[in-house]
Write a protein that binds this DNA or RNA. Sequence first.
DNA 1: AGCAGATGAGACGTTGATGTCTCATTCTAT
DNA 2: ATAGAATGAGACATCAACGTCTCATCTGCT
Lengths: 184, 184
Amino acid sequence: MATDRDSVLEAAVGVLSRRPTAHLDEIARAAGISRATLHRIFPGREALIREVGTLGLRRFAAALDTARIEEGDAQAALRRLVDAVVPDAALCAFLAGENQLYDDPGINDLWEVQDARVRALFLRGQQQGVFRIELSAGWLSEAFFDLVAGIGWAVQDGRLAPRDGAFSLAELFLGGALRRPDTP
Amino acid sequence: MATDRDSVLEAAVGVLSRRPTAHLDEIARAAGISRATLHRIFPGREALIREVGTLGLRRFAAALDTARIEEGDAQAALRRLVDAVVPDAALCAFLAGENQLYDDPGINDLWEVQDARVRALFLRGQQQGVFRIELSAGWLSEAFFDLVAGIGWAVQDGRLAPRDGAFSLAELFLGGALRRPDTP
DNA sequence: AGCAGATGAGACGTTGATGTCTCATTCTAT
DNA sequence: ATAGAATGAGACATCAACGTCTCATCTGCT
């Protein structure tokens, strides 16, 4: 049952995104299973971490697909991306915190592909005159991901209401913190 | 010699901000000393991590002081803060990644004080009509710190030139990613 | 040169998480 | 109801990092 595996991974994210060094006991308890069963599903800790990473990247890639970021106006595409990615913000928070994953070539490649897609979105937006050209597409892409992770942490720790996630992310990232005098 | 301690902590940050689970061997090698000497300076791993955390918070607090964030126009104060904090972005990146530190009450208290100062800055800016009121001061504060950490990671990994750090941070955070038609 | 202190290299025991095993219990399908 | 499979609980060995120790070497000072 793939659903079973994914539900365990889901629970693992909840623990690991906060404390990447959490013991397997803790993860198993969070998933509602015993440590023995956890080992039956995943050969070991390394495999579990890797699976969580690939799940996060699969979800992120699915969000890019759902948002159809390659189509239409760049700003509208980014707003669609925000809505699509915020539900998986916790997974992105895990990915952001687990730089160690970049040792795995498979995960690294998968990440590169998705990151390139987001960078292309910003580049396209800059060519369309929608996004600012003073900021590099690479930095926009990285900063966007940082803020998505920030949403994930804030929601998990109860500092931000889940309903406010998409709005807070889109408004801050697109419009910045400054009040615009011309748009009352 | 406090300078010696700090130089070791400095080196430790370089390693720990990327990989929080790095072995003491690795940290000692990065600092150019042996593991034995590392143990002579810091009683153990826990003490080392705690010292790195307090160093980061001291530097962050010093940046808030240097920028005089309690004085004058909120936007100008934030720009001063950006300039003051970017040189220590790597330390902030460590603080952001090491949520585990929040177990220590001393560090937790110190963090609360600084976070409250930043939140007060945003609240003041909102009252002055400088910052947008649709975004909560708490989220602005958290997002700002996330982006500072992002700067630290990007610079450390060579994805962003150190000279571009302050500009990229200030422009994105204050003005957002959207191009403003009215300010060519 | 000679001495005191500091450092590096390495050995050693301890500790805690991990991986594997067994066995009793529970769930499920027929 | 019963056989088979799956799960939980716990014991056990392994292993890697940690903390401590000793000793040789190096540095700095007189």
